[in-house]
Amino acid sequence: MNSPDSLRSPVKNARGLGSARSGVHHFIVQRATAVALLVLAIYLVVLLVSLIGADYAQARATVGHPCNAVMLVAFLLAMFWHGKLGLQVVIEDYVHTPGRALACQLVVVFACALAALASVLAVIRIALGA
């Protein structure tokens, strides 16, 4: 903290210690992914409904179509990113013990990153016919 007789400016204390100039990053990325998901979620619902009744080969062909694969990967990345940001805030709000909060945040980050990697790889495998 700045003592009253300190000659240092508050910026000196803020730099590198807090959220100075990066505080709105979470807010902006959450909104940006939200706008992307507004469109991509409609696409996903239409895709999933079109897959009703499809057998294995048809489902693979649909998911593997270049247009669908690209849109699906975009949806998955935006979704897991948006989900990570949302769960982060939930933990910040409800988990008050620092150690437990850190553990929860790490679990969320790792789980979302892993699921995003796995699902994107699955789509790419299907799209490339592996």
């Binding site: 489902a59 998911v63 789509v123 299907i126």
Partner: peptide, 13 residues
């Protein structure tokens, strides 16, 4: 639900 979707895609692959 996101994880369920990821699981379905993994199953499909």
């Amino acid at each position: 639900g996101a994880f369920v979707l990821a699981g379905m895609l993994l199953a499909l692959a």
